[in-house]
């Protein structure tokens, strides 16, 4: 696709492309196919085959996944705005799409499929290494989120957690709460497991939105 001034400005804000020249950024777009979608259009379905990544140049899209919790009804797990990327995992390592992506507004996307990426690697090694670096950044950040959640889930119930509301005060007449780090009563432990489960479930759904 031909680069417009506005689209180049969007790519200029992408951190992974920061050290590329304007010329190089417009060359990246030469390897991309322009894809326009209207409000409510489906970019791809969950489970669909596909090996394209999309850089959002205009508009906003929603990623939705089906959750077993809410039956078959899809829930929104993320939104993509200009300067962000969708579908990058399937481009580097083909697998069925893990989310349904719908345009919330009219969108202009730069689509790069697997074969274009291979061609780009030959012709524009520097720019394509920045693109792959961008993907690595996204994947590492998501994996860090997974690790962080797992570490939090492993913390004993007494560990301070700033975002967790303080436990309710003990009922009148009850004995003082046990000291932190003591063995939890089974009911509290069961509640902790339930909390972890529901927290993870929504977290997984969000991550699945990174198709």
């Amino acid at each position: 696709m031909r680069a417009t001034e506005a689209h180049l400005r969007v790519l200029e804000r992408v951190r992974a492309f920061a050290d590329l020249s304007v010329q190089e950024r417009s060359e990246v777009l030469m390897f991309a196919r322009e894809r326009r979608v209207g409000v409510g259009d489906v970019l791809f379905q969950e489970g669909a085959a596909g090996d394209s990544l999309f850089m959002v140049l205009e508009g906003e899209l929603s990623s939705l996944v089906r959750t077993r919790v809410a039956g078959a009804k899809p829930v929104e797990v993320s939104r993509a705005v200009p300067g962000e990327m969708i579908g990058e995992m399937a481009c580097l390592d083909p697998a069925p799409r893990s989310a349904l992506v719908i345009a919330r507004t009219a969108c202009v996307l730069a689509e790069i499929d697997r074969s274009s990426l291979a061609a780009m690697e030959q012709a524009l090694p520097r720019a394509s290494s920045r693109l792959v670096g961008w993907i690595i950044e996204l994947v590492h950040a998501r994996m860090a989120a997974v690790n962080d959640r797992v570490a939090k889930a492993l913390a004993p119930p007494g560990t301070p957690e700033p975002s967790v509301p303080p436990p309710p005060p003990p009922a009148a007449g009850s004995s003082a709460p046990p000291p932190r780090g003591s063995v939890p009563v089974p009911a509290a432990a069961a509640q902790a497991v339930a909390d972890v489960r529901s927290g993870f479930r929504s977290f997984i759904d969000r991550l699945r939105g990174s198709v």
């Binding site: 929104e76 993320s78 950044e137 991550l207």
Partner: peptide
């Protein structure tokens, strides 16, 4: 679960990026 994260040495400092890329 941690088994699934094998081989990764990741830092929580990058968590903020997740909020940008994957959340409204």
């Amino acid at each position: 679960l941690l088994e699934g994260a094998k081989g990764w040495d990741l830092s929580v400092e990058t968590l903020d990026a997740v909020e940008v890329v994957s959340m409204p």
